[in-house]
Design a protein around this nucleic acid. Structure first.
Lengths: 221, 221, 221, 221
DNA sequence: CATGAATGAGTGTTCATTCAT
DNA sequence: GATGAATGAACACTCATTCAT
């Protein structure tokens, strides 16, 4: 089964704002309820230990209801991921577009990413397990999700722009360099999620550190 | 249940070379058989989709035998991780100790890390799932494993040394900077694992790129 | 629950031709729609694998609508059977009544039965499963359906007439002998339904064979 | 999926009498326990309404145990049918072989068949549902079971022999005529099963009637 | 009346774990 | 100690039936 076929693109790409019958709007709302519940439960327990009943109960629906909106557990999970990344991408595109210079775009990119992760801690906690009982089940499946690819491509484009503007070195490919930026802030996010005293510090504060480390490295100048 | 309590440290810390009765030596050998099998099966199927029977069959033992050596499935899994990281740590300590200068130590650290990952692809593939059906089951549990902590501390120490030698900037803490190095090469490893054409390129070749990016960053000088 | 209570006899025995309000006529029409759809779906999938939704969709009604016309799935099923046999009985009675002699009546009986089965292959295919995943759920329930009984009684009467006319032997009861005739043509029907090359041969052609076997037996004279 | 592949022929064709380790013998015994329980439960409730739990409970095993001996519910069911018919065939072959003349073989065939049905009422009750909630699910699947085919072929051979000996008419094919004999006694069996007063009359008594009707037909001579 | 979304009990099946041999 | 058969709790998923709109 193809990963992307699991996702009902209709719900993701369609702009639900206009001209929906009450029926359709309600349907979308319920779908959202379930996704919200799933986000919470998956984040808490992980994919395998979360049960559909957990999710249904959290969403205050009956078990069977979940299956009216999602083909199966896997499809629900992928829809969730797809949706989150889709939202993130939309924000990133919109916000970075206001800047001209690559450096400024980078700043915004990092800042918005951090902000999004901060606002969606629950969701990203899913990934932060850092391998906990991880499984490579059908490795590559996940990172082939089109949104994940798009996020990566977005970074590559940003780096490419930086290279054109001579902000970023050109002795390595944009892709290679982009693949360094992402884990740097993932690691920052991860460490932030781990800490108990999250209340105090804001994740967004870290954007300076990330950009600095990314551009200048750890070496003393 | 405490994570570390899951691990029978005896088997890990004890030097098995001397003064073991045949009994005890056999026991250790069988344990190793099972761990080897578990590594293979977990890597192939992931934690949840691997069954104890799969592992027992692979190890050519009966199902029940696994339980003579490991309390339960989880304990087996954590023992595996603990063991791998323990081996890695031993290698890193030994190899970096031959160098004096922080820079050289860093080079060796990265090189040996990559080499170890390359030699143990199967095992690390477990983690590389990067969230595929990830589960945050008892988040934080995993990264509290003492070996994982030790690996992180090892990096911190290395960075600290680099700071003392003025190789590495001191405007951020050693821990913070260390937490940047690890994900950089994790990302390199990940991308390498993903590629089909693994046969061609060697992972160890990438150590130059990693050190360069880590020390100098992506910025054009 | 009594089987016959499952059937809303009203709909079956009443002659719907006269004096029905539009309301009632519409109701009957819808009921017929659903029965038609049920016949198709049950024949295709069997009782247990057919869902009410399948049937509703086939009839182009909503799921709930089915329940306005039938108490439950079982009742729908029995209504279907009742109706089919009721139709068959009506035809048999009418057609055989034109003949005087028992032999002629028998000929017509067999011929019309075969014709009916041929015209309603879909429906009878339901039974032809010959036990496939059969279920004796509440054994005896089915053959207690009044129409099934009536069909059997009809045959008995025919045999009785034959005995009176000395066409048929009298050393066994009419019922016993009748119970031999039915399975003979059921078996012919069954074998006909099984064959792929149904298009070619007509089922009605077999009436000669059946009557011959029934009256003269397999023995060489 | 091929029907016959559902059946573990090993258990059916192998003669379990000799040279089985205790292990293997026990295994076979347990398999038999479960088949016995399944026979009872399927006969009582039918395929769909019987649950694996019912069967396990009846056999006094845990649910999971059933799956150690049978791949799934369907396989258990087909094994049951296959086994019964296999036993029947073995008996028929053995007993009819003592006779020379076709007529005598036929007598034995009918008599033994009836005896077998009588001894295995429970099992055959499964089929006797006479269409109760029957389903043609994948029509033809069932009658393609090799044992069912073999039973039919056995009858055909018997008829063929009768034709050679000029006991049976030759104006129809042996197959066609054989297909008449089977339903005649099936109908007798069915009617016998239906009756409450089974205790009184023995099914085997009916063999005279069946042979008479089959050879001479219902016509008055 | 008609609708079809919601319900939730119920089923087949898996698998970690135990324990008699 | 080793075995592997037995266990039974647990889970994804289905579908007859209900009921608010």
């Amino acid at each position: 089964m193809n990963v992307n076929s699991l996702i009902e693109d209709k719900f993701i790409t369609e702009k639900p704002e206009l001209s929906l019958s009450r029926r359709e709007r309600d349907k979308l709302l319920r779908r959202a309820d379930i996704l919200r519940a799933a986000e919470h439960v998956f984040a808490l327990k992980g994919y395998y230990e979360a049960t559909i009943q957990d999710i249904a109960r959290e969403a205050q629906y009956a078990t069977g209801t979940v299956y009216l909106y999602f083909k199966d557990k896997e499809s629900l999970y992928f829809s969730l991921v797809e949706r989150k990344y889709s939202d993130l991408l939309a924000i990133l595109k919109e916000r970075t577009s206001v800047a001209r210079a690559a450096r400024e775009k980078l700043e915004i990119f990092i800042h918005e990413n951090l902000g999004f992760f901060e606002r969606n801690q629950d969701f990203f906690r899913i990934f932060v397990s850092e391998g906990n009982k991880s499984q490579a089940l059908k490795v590559g499946r996940f990172h082939k999700l089109s949104v994940i690819k798009q996020h990566r491509e977005f970074v590559t484009e940003l780096v490419k722009l930086g290279q054109e503007e001579r902000l970023i070195r050109s002795d390595f490919s944009a892709k290679q360099i982009g693949d360094v930026l992402i884990p740097i802030f993932m690691s920052v996010v991860f460490n932030w999620l781990k800490e108990e005293s999250k209340g105090a510090k804001s994740l967004s504060r870290m954007s300076g550190f990330i950009l600095d480390m990314f551009l200048n490295g750890a070496g003393k100048k």
